[in-house]
């Protein structure tokens, strides 16, 4: 019961970051600022959703798999952000 409430709270917080990140992705004036929004807010949102789901997991194996989903997206976000930032710079974005 308490786990359910915490899950709903975590997923709610995750959605907040998803929406905020997407608002930044639409509003920010240049490519690199938009990449900030994408990398930080949306991946934090996903992390909170995953954490909320982990509280409902029936066994340790599922928790580990959820952690793997989160680690993979985090590592991918940190790497892809650097690559895209550089690539946009070489394309002549200010």
């Amino acid at each position: 019961m308490i786990a359910d409430a915490v899950t709903v709270l975590l997923i709610g917080a995750g959605l907040f970051f998803f929406v905020a990140g997407t608002v930044g992705f639409v509003r920010f004036p240049d490519v690199h600022s938009r990449l900030h929004a994408l990398t930080k807010a949306d991946n934090l949102g996903l992390g909170l959703v995953v954490l909320g789901a982990a509280l409902q997991a029936p066994d340790a194996a599922t928790v580990l798999k959820l952690v793997l989903v989160w680690l993979l997206t985090l590592a991918a976000a940190a790497t892809v952000a650097q690559l895209l930032a550089r690539s946009a710079l070489e394309d002549g974005a200010p």
């Binding site: 998803f18 992705f25 938009r34 990449l35 989903v69 997206t73």
Partner: peptide, 20 residues
């Protein structure tokens, strides 16, 4: 880069959707 970033966000959102 904006276009591929949009695709990235579709990917992140898709992962969240699958977790839900």
């Amino acid at each position: 880069a904006d276009r591929i970033m949009g695709a990235q966000l579709i990917g992140t959102s898709g992962v969240a959707l699958l977790v839900l």
